[in-house]
Amino acid sequence: MCLTSSLIFSPRCHLVSCLGTEFRKGAGVLDIVYESPFQLLTCGYDTFIRYWDLRICSRKCVMEWEEPHDSALYCIKTDKNHMIASGSSYYGVVRLWDKRQTRCLQMFQLAPTTSSPVYSLSFNTTHLYAALASVLFSLDFRATGSQSWK
């Protein structure tokens, strides 16, 4: 995840750290979410969500969660508290995770008949929105159904 060989720094910018060192080939990062200046989450092709705390260590993540069906993770969001939502590369799968646990809390398969990834998502305590190739899903956690717009 370090790009030092191709970076040109201005006098106002300098490289602080490279995150991680032992990733397997093809483990590219597809999304980064900052929770604070020192804490961030990453996800990507290698099917992992990683939680980094730069105050502790920049060479090793402090926690990681693996997508159980070996799908790349295109996007993640967090409520900056305990919850994480991730968007998978196949069938519009969105998973909800609790940072205090190692396994997924809940899965939503939004598009079982298409192989579209979840390109973007957003959520709060009452709603989740997920953008797929040709549809935008809206889930209302207070109601018993979901809506989609084409």
Rank of each mutant, 00 (worst) to 15 (best):
C2R: 11
L3M: 14
T4H: 09
S5H: 13
S6C: 10
S6W: 07
L7Q: 13
I8A: 12
F9W: 08
S10H: 11
P11G: 05
C13P: 09
C13F: 06
C13D: 13
C13L: 10
H14G: 09
L15I: 08
C18L: 11
C18R: 11
L19Q: 06
G20S: 07
T21E: 14
E22M: 10
E22T: 12
K25D: 15
G26A: 08
G26L: 12
G26P: 01
G26N: 09
A27E: 01
A27Y: 05
G28C: 13
V33N: 05
V33I: 11
Y34F: 14
S36G: 05
S36R: 04
F38K: 13
L40R: 01
L40G: 00
L41M: 10
L41P: 00
L41A: 03
C43Q: 04
G44R: 01
D46R: 04
R50M: 08
R50E: 06
Y51T: 03
Y51A: 05
Y51I: 02
R59I: 08
K60H: 15
V62M: 12
W65T: 00
E66N: 12
E67C: 08
E67D: 15
P68M: 09
H69W: 11
H69P: 07
H69S: 15
H69N: 15
D70L: 10
D70G: 12
S71G: 12
S71R: 09
A72R: 05
L73C: 05
I76F: 01
I76P: 00
K77F: 00
K77V: 00
T78L: 02
N81Q: 14
H82I: 14
M83G: 00
M83A: 04
S86E: 05
G87H: 02
S88R: 04
S88G: 14
Y90L: 15
Y91H: 15
G92T: 03
V93P: 00
V94I: 07
V94G: 03
R95T: 03
L96G: 04
L96P: 01
L96Q: 07
L96E: 05
W97Q: 02
D98R: 03
D98Y: 04
R100N: 07
R100Y: 06
T102N: 11
T102L: 09
R103Q: 15
L105T: 04
Q106G: 07
Q106I: 02
Q106V: 09
M107L: 12
F108L: 11
F108C: 08
Q109A: 12
L110G: 02
L110F: 04
P112E: 04
P112S: 09
T113Y: 10
T114N: 09
S115C: 12
P117E: 02
V118D: 00
S120A: 10
L121G: 01
F123R: 02
T126K: 08
T126Q: 13
H127R: 08
H127S: 08
L128C: 11
L128N: 01
Y129F: 14
Y129C: 08
Y129M: 14
A130G: 08
L132I: 04
L132W: 01
V135G: 00
V135A: 02
V135E: 01
L136Y: 05
F137Y: 12
S138H: 13
D140R: 03
D140W: 07
F141H: 05
R142D: 10
T144L: 13
G145I: 12
S148P: 06
W149F: 15
W149R: 12
K150L: 02
K150G: 06
